[in-house]
Design a protein around this nucleic acid. Structure first.
Length: 877
RNA sequence: GGACGCAUAGCUCAGCGGGAGAGCAUCCGCCUUACAAGCGGAGGGUCGCAGGUUCGAACCCUGCUGCGUCCA
């Protein structure tokens, strides 16, 4: 057979894989050729992932890199499986973050947003976006994201803004969006309300001050960590059953420093066992106090402005809240009102998740979404299995949240965002304006000043990006989406809200079939990465140093469901080594004429090694498939790594060398097996490491691209167990000889004459050439004198290997080697006897387990006898 | 304060009822004609502690300790 091998490809393959030189051009070719462009009109089954939109201000961090690797792998595999695969990109407008960035820029020019005015400021933000926004999109290209760039979306785009307005109107009309005066989480720095989950609690050091209110008989001690709020107290509350204070309920006591008299009220929500059992009530500055105030019709006295500066008349007016606190305490101390002070006092303090400023509960008029009915539906969709959460342990957390949800504060006192489509009339009219409606005009009409929470528009992402509210082809084709992949840290912020909004907007159809939640990235010692710790690893540094494939493989390989991932530079280097290994193995295969141009010959024309590696590849396909379906990225990477390195490279390539050396039909058959197995591996690896596999696969097959290659499927050929057993025997024999050689200090390259007996019984007579090649043994010649020997127990029987080491052997080393084997066998025997001598075990354990132990025992006994005999035969060392 | 998760080799993690595993790190020997980003070999663990269930527990149950996360 002298047919043409695809030589043009083999010679094209450089000696080394140089990702930096190849990746960008390769990526651009993929995009230009439209491989990632989804066709809504095809008749393929749909597969769709919407990208969790990164902030327009953001840049790529490891968490993104992980999530993108996952999404890309899922999408690429489906594409290869023949799905119409759409991975839809975009960004969100990040209200507070973006406004902050542009305000900082303005501050550099000595301006505030108020100097520009709302309209000009918003223009300015758009200008900023055009110039600096979306850096992350370019970084995504470097990662190799197989994304449909033609469908890129932005939450502030006209289409998505229209979706926001439409859904707001629907919520308003259904009575699910309402305006109310409530205590909300307020950031005195960002000057806006926040939703509950945008507040992060931490245990901070503060002070607990006990203050005596009233005098003499009518005095009550209350404790507080926020002394300055006492200026706004309008009552003291005690538990109605509390005997200590029963006589005071209904009376009034003097509020120090203010001269005001405030009532003592009885409220069941007061915990009589905490502190003195009496609490001060500041309805305008505390959510619990607000509730008490409502129940007892107490006035709400606001004593701070939006920046946290005291407004109450008196000596504290104009002080910041943190200056006012010690000042108030000092003044109270002077009056002899301080009963106790505990400092430092650890307690939970809320911080703005954006800027870390201590959140100030503030009474204000805000818009809310009534979430109860939406949350119920969102919970049910998961409960009844229409949407599956992976890993399932996280579903419980999801339920806990959606089942105990407070109404969602959606208005933000910002300028950058979707302005609330509510117009107020001169006579108190409130009109909600839909997307195709004209807002009312005329004297006294004005639009609500606030914008909507960014998460409100993000919540619409799975359908707004597909064209909703229009009934587009994309929407019909790709909704509900297949998988939503994101970190579990935004399960509530985003996933739960998309579930609520999707079910609400799309007639009860949930937005995803599967929700995959990956873990968080940590440093090598398991600590959270943060700028302050200085342990952040920049993914771009990895892309530069090791290539995109290595970075991706590292992340995918660490992605065990439900657990966080520790990362270190060595991990990436290891992945780079794997890519190099794959490269070199492919180069070897190609240099030796590996090909997919011919089909693999019929089984009976193949060797045990061929059949074994083909069967293993077959098993690998099913294993990888199953692991993909279960989102087990770490395990599927491990399986691919192990097969490629430990089986294909370490054994089959070595065995193939022997077969190719035979020449003729054997060599030709080997070339097709080499080629087909490599082809399978490259296709299986492509979703995770797209670049190197593309170059190798096109070189191997001459095909246009592996991006569109067909995903491997099982052929259904049954495993050849005889071939597998023989190869395992060869592996064991070779390994034992190598071990002997190493123990005896024989150089790896040194060829040693050897005589093998018992190979027929062990059923490996056909593999002597391979054994000799892999163990570096040569045929015994006439002068052969066995100076050393070892026995290897194989599945079929014992093999004796006699070696001519042309000299003496290291008796001490050999004795040590045998002693070790003996000790292992004795331990095995003891273990087996321990079980078999236990009547309860023999009686109750399943027969197959008992039989297995018996077989193991027999083997151990035989080993002991054999090794003991050899030790006895050994000369004194 | 409530809930959950995790404790397995030096490090990071698999395994979750019947012979303790991987990657990295370590030690020894090698530039053996694809690969020193490599090859061959080796060492290393009372599977957090204490009970219990079971013929049998790293694995199931209870308690404890330590660490972490989420919610208040």
């Amino acid at each position: 057979m002298t047919e043409t091998l695809p030589q043009q490809y083999t010679t094209d393959l450089p000696a080394a894989w140089t990702p930096a030189e190849v990746e960008q051009g390769m990526y651009q070719r993929w995009v230009d050729n439209g491989y990632f462009t989804a066709d809504a009109s095809s008749d393929k089954p749909p597969f769709c992932i919407v990208l969790p939109p990164p902030n327009v201000t953001g840049s790529l961090h490891m968490g993104h890199a992980l999530n993108h690797t996952v999404m890309d792998a899922l999408t690429r595999r489906r594409r290869m499986q023949g799905y119409e695969a759409l991975w839809l990109p975009g960004m969100d407008h990040a209200g507070i973050a973006t406004q902050n960035v542009v305000e900082r820029q303005l501050a550099g020019e000595g301006l505030s947003r108020h100097d520009l005015g709302r309209e000009r400021f918003v223009e300015r933000v758009w200008e900023w976006k055009a110039e600096y926004g979306g850096k992350i999109l370019d970084q995504m290209r470097r990662l190799g994201d197989g994304i449909d760039w033609g469908r890129e979306r932005f939450t502030m785009d006209p289409g998505l803004s229209r979706a926001v307005q439409t859904i707001f109107k629907k919520l308003f009309d259904d009575g699910l969006a309402y305006r109310a005066e409530r205590i909300t989480n307020w950031c005195p720095r960002c000057l806006t309300a926040l939703s509950d989950i945008e507040v992060e609690h931490s245990e901070d050091e503060g002070e607990l001050v006990s203050i005596r209110y009233g005098d003499g008989e009518a005095s009550i001690v209350v404790a507080t960590t926020r002394a300055e709020t006492m200026l706004g107290d309008t009552a003291i509350a005690v538990h109605p059953e509390d005997e200590r204070y029963r006589h005071l309920v209904g009376t009034e006591v003097e509020l120090p420093l203010t001269g005001r008299r405030i009532p003592v009220v009885a409220d069941e929500h007061v915990d009589p066992s905490f502190g003195t059992g009496a609490v001060k009530v500041t309805p305008a500055h505390d959510p619990n106090d607000f509730e008490i105030g409502q129940r007892h019709s107490l006035p709400s006295l606001t004593v701070m402005d939006e920046r946290g500066v005291i407004t109450a008349n008196g000596p504290f007016q104009g002080l910041d809240r943190f200056e006012a606190r010690p000042a108030v305490v000092a003044a109270l101390r002077e009056l002899g009102r301080i009963v106790a002070e505990k400092r430092p006092y650890l307690h939970s303090v809320g911080h703005c998740s954006r800027c870390d400023t201590v959140v100030e509960p503030r009474l204000s008029l805000q818009w809310f979404v009534k979430v109860a009915p939406l949350a119920q539906a969102a919970g049910d969709a998961v409960r009844d299995g229409r949407t599956t959460i992976h890993p399932p342990e996280l579903a419980k957390r999801y339920f806990d949240w959606v089942d105990n949800l407070h109404d969602w504060c959606i208005s933000r006192q910002l300028w950058w965002g979707h302005r609330i489509p509510i117009w107020y009339g001169p006579d108190g009219e409130v009109v909600c304006v839909g997307p195709d409606e004209q807002p009312p005009t005329g004297e006294g009409w004005h639009q609500d000043e606030d914008v909507l929470d960014t998460w409100f528009s993000s919540g619409l992402w799975p359908f707004s990006t597909l064209g909703w509210p229009d009934r587009t082809a994309d929407l019909a084709r790709f909704y509900p989406t297949s998988v939503l992949s994101t970190g579990y840290d935004i399960l509530f912020f985003w996933v739960a809200r998309m579930m609520m909004m999707g079910l609400y907007a799309m007639d009860g159809v949930p937005p995803f079939e599967h929700v995959y939640l990956h873990g968080l990235i940590r440093d090598a010692s398991g600590k959270k990465m943060s700028k302050s710790r200085g342990n952040v690893i920049d993914p771009l540094a990895w892309l530069d140093a090791y290539g995109a494939d290595a970075a991706r493989f590292t992340l995918a390989r660490g992605a065990n469901p439900g657990s966080d991932m520790a990362l270190a530079e060595e991990w990436a280097a290891g992945s780079r080594n794997f890519c190099t290994k794959l490269w070199n193995a492919s180069r070897f295969a190609l240099l030796n004429g590996a090909t997919t141009a011919r089909p693999v010959p019929a089984r009976e024309q193949l060797t045990d090694a061929d059949r074994w590696i083909l069967d293993r590849a077959e098993q690998l396909v099913s294993e990888v498939d199953e692991l993909f379906e279960r989102f087990e990225f770490a395990k599927l990477c491990e399986a691919l790594y192990h097969f490629t390195w430990d089986e294909y490279c370490d054994w089959y390539l070595e065995l193939a060398k022997v077969q190719i050396a035979e020449g003729g039909e054997r060599a030709e058959a080997t070339r097709t097996v080499l080629g087909h197995v490599l082809d399978t591996v490259l296709r299986l690896l492509h979703p995770v490491i797209p670049f190197v596999t593309e170059q190798l696969w096109t070189a191997l097959t001459g095909g246009e691209t592996v991006v569109l290659a067909q995903w491997p499927t099982s052929t259904g050929v049954p495993t050849d167990t005889v071939a597998a057993r023989r190869i395992e025997s060869v592996q064991k024999l070779v390994t034992e000889v190598r071990r002997f050689r190493s123990d005896q200090g024989l150089k790896p390259g040194q060829r040693v004459a050897a005589r093998l007996s018992g190979v027929d019984g062990a059923d490996i007579a056909g593999h002597l050439g391979a054994v000799r090649s892999l163990a570096r043994l040569t045929e015994p010649e006439d002068s052969f004198t066995a100076s050393a020997s070892l026995e290897v127990a194989l599945a079929g029987g014992l093999v004796l290997v006699e070696l001519d080491t042309s000299g003496t052997i290291d008796v001490v080393a050999e004795r040590r080697r045998l002693a070790k084997d003996l000790s292992a066998a004795e331990k095995e025997l003891a273990q087996c006897d321990g079980k078999l001598n236990n009547p309860a075990f023999v009686d109750k354990a399943p027969a197959q387990v008992v039989d297995k132990i018996k077989v193991r025992r027999e083997a151990a006994v035989a080993d002991i006898a054999r090794i003991t005999a050899r030790l006895d035969a050994l000369p004194e060392g």
